[in-house]
Design a protein around this nucleic acid. Sequence first.
DNA 1: GTCTATATAAGGATAGAC
DNA 2: GTCTATCCTTATATAGAC
Lengths: 200, 200
Amino acid sequence: MPEAELSTEEKILKAAEEVFMRDGYDGSRMQDIADVAGINKALLHYYFRSKDKLFEKIFDAKIQVFFPRLEQAFYQDLPFMEKVEFFIEQYIGLLRNNPYLPLFVLNTINKRDNSDFIKKVPAELSQRLIMSYNADFQQGKLRAINPLQFVISVMGMCIFPFLGRPVLQNMFKADSNAFDKLMEQRIEELKVYIRLILTP
Amino acid sequence: MPEAELSTEEKILKAAEEVFMRDGYDGSRMQDIADVAGINKALLHYYFRSKDKLFEKIFDAKIQVFFPRLEQAFYQDLPFMEKVEFFIEQYIGLLRNNPYLPLFVLNTINKRDNSDFIKKVPAELSQRLIMSYNADFQQGKLRAINPLQFVISVMGMCIFPFLGRPVLQNMFKADSNAFDKLMEQRIEELKVYIRLILTP
DNA sequence: GTCTATATAAGGATAGAC
DNA sequence: GTCTATCCTTATATAGAC
């Protein structure tokens, strides 16, 4: 869709997303958002009453992406291991297209005053995974581990390289392409790890 | 050491550490730091010329903690697997005492303009680990994996729960004590994982 | 709906007295 | 070294014309 066809409200939301994701709430300026949107500051306040309100709109959308529901795989009757493999594949793919997402979300939910934001996290995902583990474990198909710790571990393995990206690229003299390639390879590597951990 | 015995410079550094770690660079106010230190703003600028300079002092100290050198284990002639186990133990212990550290460091190194900060990361740690892996692998003591991906994974597994802490606590109705207990248990859990991955 | 101009406040930094 | 007072710039937000 060409930019000219976007409504003013859409242009603002698009610009706000870009600026907030890149600079965080504290680092963002309403003027920057107006510039990116190609309008002036006053219009921002006309559409969204305040910086807080505008930010909330963006966050509400992004939290749903960062903690995905993944209905496709998790509501199907797949073995636990395949669900995890599917998650790794989808999630690293997602982050490759949304490099700023993790830091943005983690910053927001860690803000002391903004504890409301935490409540917006879709909570069922990990609960369902744990139930799925227990079902397969009781059939002897999985090794005895702590499913909560395991779920945290899988998320950490997927997300962390995107958080430490500048360091990794500097350490191994990699450009953006090399990093992306590394993340593509990472999918298969992590699948090997989780199979080794879960197979009895 | 009682607070009264601290020099003004020490009081400022202590207060700056607290505020910067908690609120980040953009979210911190010189006034807040002065208040915590029990002095006034002007004195901050007398001791450290600017907010930037003061921040740099704090960051320089913290980056050394977040990317530790761990000479104790890694310069000794231990098997790779034991080095990793030692790392997990030490590092989770460190983070349990420094909950804000990961987000603080990751935010700073991800700032576009502040790419100077990246250069301050001690880079040898992962390089040494990879060399150590290769040595043991050639003796047939380890499974064939990608050592770089493995090192990223171990760091991610250790660090991520501290980043997602508010969500985890909310999701599982855990207070600070329960979370800390979970992290203590996590040490042994992760050791199991890495043994399963690395053992041929 | 969109703009210019401006109110109001906050934040970093400095001057100058003690 | 430490304080009060203040300068200067920047930010959010609003008023009012078109």
